[in-house]
Design a protein around this nucleic acid. Structure first.
Lengths: 107, 107
DNA sequence: AGTATACGCAACCCAGAGGTTGCGGATTCC
DNA sequence: GGAATCCGCAACCTCTGGGTTGCGTATACT
């Protein structure tokens, strides 16, 4: 799991974690207890998810007084999207080659 | 897990599954035993992974004689990329608004 | 016909992820 | 100072996901 892209997909694989990211996308700062009120899980569970997101580099934490604020860091999403795009692109290339080959055979 | 996007991320969360997709991107057709030779796992394990990828709509299977051929179907990748893009975009929008706000305060 | 190959199905094992409860320590409010 | 929040740490539980072995079956080779 040293692979950063792998950690991102791992982080995105959980629905609660995706909810956290969605919330973070429209709220720009959030605390664990705040999210725990909107989710069917405990504050500690949310804290673990935030830790996982932080581990994946998708989130940064900053302590402000007695509460810990979490903030989105969408950069790693780019790398993950690049991976998917490359898989899709290579496949598209092969598909195009196949089409060309079929056209040549037919003529 | 009715959410199709969720199933895609779930599928991409496993390194062996990502290897399968990479192989499939450059080979356009593949069998379970073939992949099992290149991976540190059994044929059955690979078969399960292919089943998971099929469940996520990333792969299609077709039986040809005594072997089962698997083929990439990259369409669902697009939906997953859209999800990530929207999260990133919303965040970027909020960031731009914050910058604007700071500029106004400063002047 | 007999052997070898490729598959699917089922039972089983096990580590780890997601979740909970129960604390104790800071920080803010009155 | 005392009560109310907000947090982190740790122990614990449960269940599912990735993996294996074993077996029966269908297709291909010779």
């Amino acid at each position: 799991m040293n692979d950063p892209t792998g950690r991102v997909f791992d982080a995105l694989a959980d629905p609660n974690r995706r909810y956290v990211l969605e919330a973070l996308a429209s709220r720009d700062t959030v605390t664990a207890t705040e999210l725990a009120a909107e989710l069917p899980v405990t504050r500690q569970a949310v804290a673990k998810h935030l830790a996982a997101l932080n581990e994946a580099g998708l989130v940064e934490s900053r302590r402000e007084g007695r509460e810990t604020l979490y903030q989105l860091t969408p950069a790693p999403l780019g790398a993950a999207m690049d991976w998917m795009a490359s898989v899709g692109a290579d496949w598209d290339a092969r598909l195009a080659a196949l089409r060309k080959h079929l056209r040549n055979r037919r003529s």
